[in-house]
Simulated assay, not measured.
Amino acid sequence: MNLASTIFLAFAMSTDAFAAAVGKGASLHKSRIAEALRTGVIFGIIEAITPLVGWAVGRSAAQYVTAWDHWIAFGLLFLLGARMIREGFGQPEHGHEKPDSHSFWVLAATGFATSIDAMAVGAGLAFIDVDIFSTAATIGIATMLMVTIGVMVGRLVGATIGKRAEIIGGVVLIGVGSAILVEHLGFMR
């Protein structure tokens, strides 16, 4: 796999993380660049690790990873999205404002859910001659950049649509999960 293909793959792998990051940024009070970078780093590290895990698993049992990856991604994204929608429709607590940041665990769960497909890609890369470490690093860096930008875009969107941003973010996460499921089930071929 050449450098151009690796870079294209990396940015293609990070589009769902970008969409999730827009929702995360929209649900924050006023996301600062430091929070956007923190979110980007968390997503990027997870997105870099999952193809390595997939590659290792692919060496021994690729059919098990690729057979269930889309269902796992859909389930996680659906649950996270449903939670955001529920919170978006909930009554705001008196004196309760949007958070300035998301917890590490919420970001890690979202990052993992959007990186399941990278694990499957890693499993597929186990069967071709590719430097998995540089490919995984490229995927991680691209994801970090896309997520950082996504959080800041979400900040702009969130300022204009207020509380509905969480609802929209949840719908986006469910949409990303559904798109992954539909693509893997072959409805889009």
Score class of each variant (00 low, 15 high):
Ser101Asn: 06
Ala179Tyr: 15
Ile180Phe: 00
Arg32Ala: 08
Ala109Met: 10
Phe74Ala: 03
Phe8His: 11
Asn2Leu: 15
Val151Phe: 01
Val121Met: 00
Ser31Glu: 02
Ala159Met: 12
Ala62Gly: 14
Trp105Glu: 09
Leu107Gly: 02
His96Val: 13
Val22Ser: 03
Ala118Lys: 02
Phe78Asn: 12
Phe74His: 01
Phe133Cys: 09
Ile139Asp: 00
Leu145Ser: 07
Leu125Glu: 13
Ala82Val: 03
Leu77Gly: 00
Gly95Cys: 13
Phe8Gly: 15
Gly23Pro: 12
Ile42Lys: 02
Arg164Cys: 10
Val41Ile: 09
Met1Trp: 13
Arg189Tyr: 11
Asp117Gly: 07
Ala62Glu: 10
Val65Ala: 01
Thr160Cys: 10
Met188Gln: 10
Thr15Val: 12
Val157Ile: 13
Ile168Gly: 02
Trp68Asn: 15
Ala118Pro: 01
Asn2Val: 11
Ala118Arg: 01
Gly169Asp: 05
Glu183Asn: 09
Gly81His: 08
Gly124Ser: 06
Ala136Cys: 03
Phe78Cys: 14
Gly122Val: 06
Pro51Ser: 02
Met144Gly: 09
Ser101Arg: 11
Gly158Thr: 11
Gly140Val: 03
Thr39Ala: 04
Ala19Asn: 06
Arg59Ala: 14
Ile149Gly: 08
Phe78His: 14
Ile167Ala: 12
Ser134Trp: 13
Leu185Tyr: 09
Gly81Phe: 08
Ser60Asp: 11
Gln91Tyr: 08
Ala159Asp: 15
Val176Ala: 14
Met188Asp: 12
Gly177Asp: 08
Ala137Cys: 12
Ile33Asp: 04
Gly169Lys: 03
Glu183Lys: 13
Ile33His: 09
Ile141Asn: 08
Ile49Thr: 06
Ile174Gln: 03
Tyr64Pro: 06
Leu9Met: 14
Ile116Ala: 03
Leu79Val: 15
Ile128Asn: 15
Val41Ala: 04
Ile72Cys: 01
Val182Glu: 05
Gly95Thr: 08
Ala108Val: 14
Arg164His: 14
Leu185Val: 10
Ile116Ser: 01
Gly111Arg: 02
Arg38Thr: 07
Ala142Ile: 06
His94Ala: 11
Gly154Thr: 07
Val182Lys: 04
Ala82Pro: 02
Phe187Glu: 04
Phe133Leu: 12
Met119Gln: 12
Asn2Gly: 11
Ile33Ser: 12
Thr138Gln: 02
Ser115Val: 00
Arg38Ile: 07
His29Asp: 10
Ala12Ile: 15
Ile139His: 00
Arg155Asn: 14
Gly25Ala: 09
Gly40His: 06
Gly23Asn: 09
Phe104Tyr: 12
Gly81Glu: 15
Phe43Met: 07
Ala56Asp: 02
